[in-house]
């Protein structure tokens, strides 16, 4: 199936925890152009919250860095969200994606990637130690009307 991109936003924010709710609300508001169900919107919000929180907690553990979010919507109903940081990077991505794996101790459950995988259609992770991490989340919105509203 061909996916023609119809609209895109880019967002840059500082890695402060107070921005977590802002980031997921912005992405959800933009994705609303595809006329998603409440359920689909809540899946996107949760996955974005996980990815952005990981940048804040893990990528920049001791300092404030920057997080870049790109959201592209396609006429097929596909939403692609990229969350990027220039933080510490992930040494072993396969291990990091295992449910319950965490490097952050007691108060973290190690479920972030498992939640992203269970709420989105596809999760792709690229990372290099000392360079940063890019998490790409994809979901096809079936929506309340089953397709794109009239973004164009």
């Amino acid at each position: 199936m061909k996916h023609n991109s119809v609209n895109q936003i880019k967002l840059e924010l500082e890695s402060r925890s107070v921005n977590e709710s802002f980031a997921r609300a912005v992405v959800a508001a933009f994705a609303a152009q595809l006329d998603p169900t409440v359920e689909e919107l809540s899946d996107i919000k949760t996955a974005v919250s996980e990815a952005v929180t990981n940048c804040i907690v893990h990528a920049y553990p001791n300092n404030c860095g920057r997080v870049w979010i790109t959201v592209i919507i396609h006429d097929s109903g596909l939403v692609r969200i990229r969350v990027r940081d220039k933080g510490c990077g992930i040494p072993d991505i396969t291990k990091a994606r295992e449910p319950l794996f965490t490097t952050a101790g007691e108060e973290r459950s190690g479920l972030g990637f498992a939640v992203m995988e269970s709420f989105m259609d596809r999760v792709h992770v690229r990372s290099a130690v000392g360079v940063g991490t890019t998490v790409t989340l994809e979901k096809t919105i079936r929506g309340r009307s089953g397709g794109l509203n009239d973004a164009g």
């Binding site: 949760t46 919250s49 007691e106 108060e107 973290r108 972030g112 498992a114 939640v115």
Partner: peptide, 16 residues
Amino acid sequence: SFMDSSAVGLVMGRYR
């Protein structure tokens, strides 16, 4: 109205 895996960590921590 909303929770992510941080809430799971919160519950786990209170369990302990």
